[in-house]
């Protein structure tokens, strides 16, 4: 079951044109099918190539390649109270997916602007392999990750949380969250596998939603 939240423009680097992307809250069997039958084989193919040349998962932008999205979808169905899942599609093909937590122990701010205030926590966010720099020579769509982070911020406003969003970033995604999105880097979290923790503060969220946004993924 999924609900159409609206359409955003996503730039296609191959054609040089903007295309309509639809953002959904929820998912259906087609989204899982896309991940299993289109994403996974491509990740696997690139993983084997990387092994052959001695490159790491980070080198080929595939640190999340083994995430089990089927299990995450099941969690979202079983615990709708705690999780929301969002997908981004272009031409009915899944281009990116995000699982957020809307309550629980991860959902408290560490930002000095509003310590301990509740927030939306982005548990997992992945884009399709063909959209990733370093994974493919010519990534197709740019802006999918940014569109989903914007969706998380929008969802945070909807939940009366003033746009606050937090997440732990895999090493290969740190630059994206810090430089491209502009999230506050709150340092390494030794209690979370040493990953760096980032937040969108309420004031930054307010600015993002009132000024024209630039940049690209």
């Amino acid at each position: 079951m999924k609900t159409n939240l609206g359409t955003v423009s996503i730039y296609n680097r191959v054609t040089g044109r903007d295309e309509d992307a639809v953002i959904y809250q929820g998912f259906d069997a087609q989204n899982l099918a896309h991940i299993e039958t289109r994403w996974r084989p491509m990740f696997e193919e690139r993983r084997v190539e990387a092994l052959r040349i001695g490159a790491s998962a980070s080198d080929i932008n595939a640190e999340d390649a083994r995430w089990e999205w089927g299990r995450k979808m099941l969690a979202a169905v079983r615990e709708p109270f705690l999780y929301e899942l969002f997908v981004l599609e272009v031409a009915a093909i899944t281009q990116a997916i995000m699982l957020v937590r809307k309550g629980g122990e991860k959902c408290f701010s560490r930002h000095e602007e509003h310590p301990r205030a509740p927030l939306i926590y982005v548990d997992f966010l992945s884009t399709a392999p063909w959209n990733r720099p370093r994974m493919v020579a010519q990534p197709v769509y740019t802006g999918c990750g940014r569109a989903l982070i914007s969706t998380a911020i929008s969802f945070s406003f909807e939940e009366e949380l003033r746009g606050r969003v937090g997440l732990h970033a895999l090493p290969g995604a740190e630059e994206f969250y810090r430089e491209k999105i502009g999230m506050t880097d709150l340092g390494v979290d030794e209690d979370y596998s040493g990953l760096r923790y980032f937040e969108v503060s309420a004031s930054f969220a307010a600015k993002m939603f009132t000024s024209p946004e630039g940049g690209e993924e």
């Binding site: 705690l82 309550g103 629980g104 122990e105 949380l161």
Partner: peptide
């Protein structure tokens, strides 16, 4: 302190309670 309405605060408290209880 949190800048929340009563409804939003109770909703967050319920989610935390449910998360811990689970």
């Amino acid at each position: 302190e949190k800048g929340l309405s009563k409804t939003a605060l109770v909703r967050q408290a319920l989610r935390l309670y449910q998360s811990v209880d689970a």
